[in-house]
Design a protein around this nucleic acid. Structure first.
Lengths: 336, 336
DNA sequence: AGAAACAATGTAAACGTTTACATTTTAAAC
DNA sequence: GTTTAAAATGTAAACGTTTACATTGTTTCT
């Protein structure tokens, strides 16, 4: 029942090498021979076994994707971008999410050490020395997505959190003339969060608001964090004119808190977020936020990774591309 | 540089068979020998090559997942359920989404025909004859998720759309005594949508509301579809007391329309949805809807698929499991 | 027509495992 | 201390390709 290259070769009256060449699109085969082999193959329903091919070629046509967690639309977009690009180029995608550091490491080792994939796209919140060591030792190329930590000597695609935060805060100042702008920050050890905070500070500074126009409370990127952060800011003696939530999820929490306290957005206080998650367009008023090109991050990572796989020289070079964000204007900042 | 089983065997002073046995956890190896091999392996950083292993064993420890599209949180949840379960059992997941029918077929053929995966989880909106033929011909088992069409003789996990719809409509009738209940339906060719409509009709019938308590307009599962469907229903001479949206996305559209028309939910009209998407909990009031156990669908599919892979006999048996939904009460139906 | 150059095909050795089967070692029984 | 059975290890043949290298077939040139 099983049909392999030998059966095809036999039936077609050629050697297995010729059959192999036909399926590798070699130009060393005469057209008539090619046709004959292809015809027999179709008859026998022959498809070259990719595992055997991988073993022989030492290539799998597969990229591994390691994600910190599969929950959240953020990751869905990433996978979407990756899958689409990989499919276009006829590659396969092996995914693996994880819920703990150890898990990321394990998966990475499994992917990198073995011949299961030809390259890896890694999205890790924090690149530590152990991860770097694995990357260094492996023959297989790796591309980082939105990675923080010691990412030197690696290929790294990230989002311009600083610029995005700067821009949206500047919008609050320039277009709306708000004087006191609060912020609910993200986790202190999160690089995205840190850059967003820096962008915020920079904008305030630029417009001379850093002295007494600044009000910052900690947050954790969660809905509850946003809820409490908002309440904390609002309970201050001197209330802020506007609040920059370090991400949209927290902005959702802020909307809930505002609703509860009967505070109107943007009439009583303006609110902006970051990420442009799907949900944000359904908030009332629509949340003004910063769009992050997530799927693009994924597809760019794939393109670069395939480049590294094809041209080993690239592997040695470090490479960083920072994708710019764009402002998404909703009603929550006070714009019509 | 490259370290293979031969190097390890040599260095450990044993044969490659013994090394292989150590890594296959065979109990034919004495503990001291095992220790020695393991020690050397660690020293040399040896990991058995999974490709070679796959070729020899004719098993890849990988399952393929074919999805109609990677967009939408629905699919993210599916992947999440699948990945988590697969990881638990030490399997890998090869994903592939697609945007057209042809694409699903292609991927399926590639997955099933080749030795790249040991089994496939397929989520296709519609199982047609071509797909069935592929399933029939393949040695590799396949599990369907939420599939419509001719799914006999297959393993199939689906959601109880009928019961879910029936239950939520019954809730509207029993708990709130609404007399006229409208519905915005899903796509006519979508099996989920059809079952939901049937559940709706059945509930109305049960309580004798089918005569003049029914009002149905077509929809398409999109936000816009819900928006227009809601407006259509509301513009009727005799207005419905409550509306059942065939899915949550359309309910979101209905909220927008209601806001626009200054119609209060649930004071002026009650509204319920289906799916319990993430977003629905952030609507005001929270949407009453039907929770669909999506991740569970994924993990159950994996468990069953691995069962089929291990026990070939299972493959022949058709199997259907219909996962029950549960009601999620929010404020939109009129409940406190 | 024969030599030379080139195109097309074939042969056989990788690729790195697993696993029947053969062989050796160890333990048990007498 | 043999003999015997059982346990541990080794040998070698798969698994299904790719691809140097060898061989054969076909032009082209003189």
């Amino acid at each position: 029942m099983k049909v392999d290259i030998k059966k095809v070769a036999e039936k077609a009256g050629v050697s297995i090498a010729t059959v192999s060449r036909v399926f590798s699109n070699s130009d060393l085969v005469r057209q008539p021979t090619k046709d004959k082999v292809l015809k027999i193959s179709k008859e026998l329903n022959y498809i070259p076994n990719p595992i055997a091919r991988s073993l022989s070629r030492q290539l799998t046509d597969t990229i591994g994707v390691v994600l910190p967690d599969l929950v959240g639309e953020f990751f869905m977009d990433i996978i979407h971008g990756i899958d689409e690009e990989a499919y276009k180029q006829n590659w396969f995608v092996l995914v693996s999410s994880s819920h703990s550091k150890r898990n990321i490491l394990e998966t990475l080792i499994e992917f990198m050490g073995s011949g299961r994939v030809d390259g890896v796209i890694l999205m890790a919140p924090q690149i530590d020395e152990r991860i770097n060591e694995i990357i260094r030792k492996s023959k297989r190329p790796i591309v980082l997505i939105n990675a923080g930590g010691d990412t030197n000597n690696n290929a790294n695609f990230k989002v311009d959190n600083f610029q995005g935060a700067y821009t949206i805060v500047e919008h609050l100042i320039q277009n709306h003339s708000y004087k006191i702008i609060g912020m609910v920050e993200g986790p202190k050890d999160n690089y995205d969060a840190i850059d967003r905070s820096n962008g915020y500070y920079k904008a305030l500074q630029k417009y001379g608001l850093n002295k007494n126009g600044s009000m910052v409370v900690p947050g954790d990127f969660s809905v509850e964090g946003g809820y409490h952060g908002f309440k904390k800011l609002i309970s201050n003696k001197v209330k802020p004119d506007a609040i920059f939530m370090a991400n949209d999820m927290m902005a959702v929490g802020a909307y809930q808190a505002a609703k509860e306290l009967k505070i109107r957005i943007p009439e009583d206080i303006a609110l902006v977020g970051f990420d442009d998650i799907y949900l944000s367009q359904f908030l009332h008023p629509r949340l003004t936020t910063v769009h992050v090109p997530i799927a693009e991050l994924g597809s760019k990572a794939v393109i670069h990774l395939l480049g590294m796989i094809k041209d080993k020289k690239l592997k040695k070079k470090s490479f960083v591309e920072i994708l710019s964000t764009c402002l998404v204007i909703g009603g929550s900042c006070g714009c019509a």
